[in-house]
Amino acid sequence: MFLPLHDGVPLRHLKTPVVTRSLLVACTVAYLLTFYGPIGPDATVAGFGMIPAVLFGIEVLPPGFPFVPESLTLTTNIFLHGSLLHLIGNMLFLWVFGDNVEDAMGHLRFLVFFLVCGTAASLTHAFIEPDSHRPLIGASGGVSGVVAAYLILYPRVRIWGLFLKGIPLRLPAYWAIGFWFVLQFLAAFLGGDDSVGWFAHLGGFVVGAALTPFMRHRYDPVLARVEAQELQAPR
């Protein structure tokens, strides 16, 4: 287990991470509507969640479902969460890492980046489990892409986080995120909790890593390392 708490990296190009905060609000509002709205959680998940068997035409939902074309559920499912802990976990990752990645990419590029990573994560899960009748929901895939981008952009920045059974540690990003990635990889290939879309996490991470050099404004790996070292210098 790894939960990021704080990194302390100031924004250098933006005054406010508008997209990051908007995504936090959108996911929170979607959660409230899912569990306290007029439709109910089961109908909301069936209507907007991504069901691989339905996406590939293996199964058909009752009339009226899904609420959007099947292909769009690859994206709409990103904003749904199955529990308060599910929501808090994803939003905590987005809160800690999202603002600095948005700062490096700009508002529009970051929004596109997040949605593409989330959609690619959903598609990865669908291809791995094409016969699954279980809906995939959650921002984990998009968040995984953001985590990959942060690792590339700020590898040496030290992050406060809770590790294993809640041990607080302050470690460089490449150690903290590397630990997180290994957990995802092992769970995906060795059989973790089958209610979690582990391959979606890996898919989002790989796509995020591949896109970051092209999405960052004036990307320069050497400059990224220099900036990270400056952030860690005594003041």
Rank of each mutant, 00 (worst) to 15 (best):
G89W: 01
F110Y: 15
L72P: 05
M105C: 08
E59K: 09
I58K: 15
G49C: 08
H81G: 11
F56N: 11
V25A: 04
H81C: 11
E59C: 05
L55N: 06
N77H: 05
P52V: 00
G47P: 11
T44V: 12
A26D: 08
Y31R: 08
S71A: 13
A26R: 02
H107S: 02
M91A: 08
T76D: 09
L74E: 03
S22Y: 10
S71H: 08
L85H: 09
D99E: 10
Y36R: 00
F79T: 10
I58P: 13
D99S: 07
E59D: 15
L55C: 04
W95C: 06
L14W: 00
A30G: 09
L80T: 06
V18Q: 12
D99V: 01
M105N: 07
F48E: 15
P66I: 02
D99Y: 04
T28S: 14
D99N: 03
P52K: 00
M50D: 09
N77I: 00
I78Y: 11
G47N: 11
P17S: 05
H13T: 00
T34Y: 08
I51E: 05
F65K: 02
L84K: 01
F67Y: 10
M91S: 11
Y31P: 12
P69V: 05
P41K: 04
H86G: 04
R109Y: 09
T44M: 10
N77M: 06
H107F: 05
